[in-house]
Nucleic acid binder design. Structure first.
Lengths: 263, 263
DNA sequence: GGCCAGCGTTTACAAGGTAAACAAGCGAGC
DNA sequence: GCTCGCTTGTTTACCTTGTAAACGCTGGCC
């Protein structure tokens, strides 16, 4: 495993995690140029560029070459827009050829899914906290796996792989929690969340007051090292190993037929 | 370990995680009733009650029996107020008698710390996402452990327990990520984050459209079971076990003297 | 008594979300 | 071809919020 190349980095791959052709600024905006998808797409690229705080109805309107109020014809309000964004971004998963909807090899399934979501997180660092914190449709649909469809296919797949109901649910929960925690931290280290809070001073408290904290000062190089990719990989492996011990009912080699694809 | 009793539930204990006497509404507000602490305390209890979105300068002012603008004499602005909140809430850790600043038994240390933070998260479900998403002082200070002081003592303790620098840093990172992921999910299941977005309909999409998702429908009882306390406990144990394998240089039994307390 | 510093209030303004009235284009039916 | 009414974007307007700046009270000190 190379230490230098991160296979999930947005620059490192060509696939999904790229959103529709991005709905760039549509200056000349005759009527009919607008629809829900375009609006959400525009919102996504605005947020990717400027951060969440800069996403306002009027500015998004301007970005699309239209008056802010026009958006309300397609989106009930700002909150709904945010929900739409989350939904669309998560839907990128469906377009990712490396993520499978089902696989008899649940470990492989899990790894692909995890990397797929990581790719999304890295492609949209500014959006990821939103994905994590928007209230889910139902209380047991956990971020970042958000959608009922993904949840259904996840559980189905694990059951088909011989997990008991309880074990499948447990797998789902540990997986979500691992992914959320890891990616949220990774993404926030990328300087996400905080948009241009202060456009002034680009390095506010950098290299600052570590004087009271000698150990911190000493370990700073280690702490600043970005080994996210490897850490991600090894935590994921740990999770898989743990599931292998606690999860599947039948022993290795027995494969339950996948008899059902997802809606 | 009882399955029914959650030792970290706010109702289940008497200790910290209770914030100052709460700075209740101070109706008659002569001058001098105000200070930074009171303001932050009031903000915290407002958020605990009504959610983040309801926390506005004017409403907080009213809550404290004062005009909104008065707050600006003690707090530079709303963002700084939020930072103050996060800081104060995390500081509850120092008041928690069950959390140790250092211990020769690092596993015990870790467990106590984890439970301490969990207690905070459960005591302030509405605030926890804020703790998780406020930009940290330095990029390598990860939520939810937030403060430089905690970080320093954490690392120091692990080093004193025989962890190499690298291992201590790794422990810090896995610990943060585990804690963040788990608690964020746990707290959001408590219906946090989303404040009174719509005061109308108390059960909007409940028991709703699970029709396309038979497995979900079937597993719903399992999924809605709240075993957070146990799951937390066992994930924490898993983490500890893992650290035991990868972490400390010297074998069990050798205790490095704790020769330094934290600033 | 007069003055000053500290503190809360008033006034004012720029964003932002959103409702409601409005207008321009355009196809359906006659 | 004309008109009607719908679709879609625009204008206007209002309320809430964050925040700057000016104002005025009040209690202690000379």
């Amino acid at each position: 495993m190379s230490a230098k190349f991160d296979p999930d980095s947005p620059k490192g791959r060509g696939s999904a995690a790229a959103v529709l052709p991005s709905a760039g600024p549509g200056e000349g905006a005759g009527p009919g140029n607008l629809d829900r998808r375009t609006i959400i797409g525009g919102a996504i690229s605005m947020v990717d560029r400027d951060g969440l705080r800069e996403l306002t109805m009027r500015k998004l309107g301007a970005y699309l070459g239209v008056e802010g109020m026009a958006l309300y014809r397609y989106v009930p309000g700002r909150d709904a827009l945010l929900d739409g964004i989350v939904e669309v971004v998560i839907d990128e998963l469906y377009g990712d050829p490396e993520v499978l909807l089902a696989s008899a090899d649940w470990a492989d399934y899990l790894r692909r899914l995890a990397h797929g979501i990581r790719r999304i997180a890295l492609a949209h660092p500014q959006l990821f906290p939103l994905i994590a914190s928007r209230p889910p449709a139902a209380p047991w649909v956990r971020p970042p796996l958000r959608s009922l469809r993904w949840m259904e296919s996840f559980l189905q797949n694990f059951r088909d792989c011989g997990f008991s109901d309880r074990a499948a649910v447990a797998a789902y929960q540990s997986f979500s929690s691992f992914l959320l925690g890891h990616l949220l931290l990774e993404v926030s280290a990328h300087g996400a969340d905080i948009g241009p809070v202060d456009d002034a001073d680009p390095t506010p408290p950098q290299t600052s007051d570590l004087d009271g904290y000698p150990l911190l000062k000493q370990l700073k190089p280690l702490l600043s090292e970005n080994r996210s990719a490897e850490v991600f990989e090894s935590s994921l492996n740990l999770l898989v190993k743990h599931l292998k011990q606690t999860g599947p009912k039948q022993s290795r080699g027995v494969i339950a037929k996948i008899h059902r694809t997802v809606p």
